[in-house]
């Protein structure tokens, strides 16, 4: 089972995970990314490349499924304005045993951060805004899975 959702509306931190729990596996792992208050950030804005985004997320799940024995995986990603404290992304994977689900979840979020066509802009309380720079540490984490 593969589920990819791009959402303009608020997502729940358990988005899509209930479906993974029903697949008969013994392990379900997930990661939720939340907007943090980084030096006065009030909200972030997420832009994406609509005609490419879903296909790139499906490919990440296909890559994970080729690498680990998974029963299913989900990726739900917000776009638009997301306030501090709200989830931006939920990634989950289900497998018979925990190791596959845990590793696949890390793989999915690490690769999503360097490959999926999303861009973040930070909005500050004073009304200013700034595009977020990509981090070398994110590249390093993604390369672990090369």
């Amino acid at each position: 089972m593969k589920i990819v959702r791009i959402s303009n509306a608020a997502i729940q931190s358990d988005a899509g995970l209930a479906a993974l729990a029903d697949l008969g596996g013994g392990g379900l792992a997930s990661f939720t990314g939340i907007v943090r208050d980084d030096g006065g950030v009030a909200a972030i804005e997420l832009e994406h490349y609509p005609s490419m985004t879903e296909a790139s997320l499906h490919r990440l799940i296909d890559d994970a499924t080729a690498r680990w024995s998974l029963l299913g995986a989900v990726i739900t990603h917000r776009v638009g304005i997301v306030p501090v404290g709200a989830p931006v992304v939920v990634v989950g994977a289900a497998s018979l045993h925990r190791a596959e689900a845990l590793e696949a979840t890390a793989f999915l979020i690490d690769r999503l951060k360097t490959e999926a066509p999303f861009w973040k802009r930070e909005h500050y309380a004073d009304g200013s805004a700034k595009w977020v720079d990509a981090k070398a540490s994110d590249d390093a984490r993604a390369e672990r899975w090369a």
Partner: peptide
């Protein structure tokens, strides 16, 4: 052809 800065999702 799409041109953009390095991605920063997640």
């Amino acid at each position: 052809l799409a041109i953009f800065p390095p991605v920063t999702g997640g």
